[in-house]
Simulated assay, not measured.
Amino acid sequence: MNVLHEWTILACEELGIDPARVDRDQILDLTKEVAHGVARPAAPLTAYLLGLAQGAGTAPEDAVAKLTTLAKNWGDQRTQTLTDG
């Protein structure tokens, strides 16, 4: 068992989450895109915000895909936001 898998299992147990509901690779891919496309500190913040939205039942089904796309297009989005305001 690798450390990441073991950590995921133990953290899920501590939080009362079924580990089968956690798509670790999908979250790691999301945070990689955010860290590289936006800023490193934005990666854990994004994961936290996603968790809050899912816990509150407000995250859309494709929330991870939407956030990944947002991170990949961050330069374009940022330029657009700066010129709109």
Rank of each mutant, 00 (worst) to 15 (best):
A59Q: 04
R40T: 13
I27N: 02
A59G: 04
P60A: 13
A42S: 13
R21F: 00
T46N: 05
E13C: 00
A39S: 14
A59E: 02
D18R: 05
R40Y: 12
T46L: 07
L52C: 10
C12E: 01
L50S: 06
K72P: 03
L30N: 05
D62E: 14
L67G: 06
L30Y: 03
V34Y: 05
N73M: 08
L28M: 13
T69Q: 12
L70S: 10
A43C: 08
C12P: 00
V34Q: 05
T31S: 12
H36S: 10
A65Q: 15
T46D: 07
G57E: 05
W74V: 09
G37N: 10
V64S: 04
K72I: 07
V64D: 01
H36G: 04
Q26E: 15
E61Y: 07
A53W: 05
D18E: 10
E14P: 00
T68V: 06
I27E: 04
T68E: 10
E13A: 10
I27R: 04
D25C: 01
D18G: 01
A20D: 08
P60G: 14
I17L: 13
T58R: 10
E13G: 03
G75K: 15
V34P: 03
V64A: 03
R24G: 11
L52Y: 03
G16S: 00
Q54E: 15
T31W: 08
K66N: 10
E33C: 07
K72W: 05
T58V: 14
A42V: 07
V34K: 02
T58F: 07
A59H: 08
A20F: 01
L70N: 12
L45D: 05
L10C: 01
E61C: 04
G37T: 06
I27T: 07
H36R: 12
Q54G: 11
T68Q: 12
V64Q: 05
G16E: 00
R40D: 11
Q54I: 09
I17V: 14
G75E: 15
L28V: 07
D18T: 01
E14M: 03
R24V: 15
A63N: 05
A20I: 05
G57Y: 01
L50W: 04
L49K: 06
L70V: 11
R40C: 06
L10V: 09
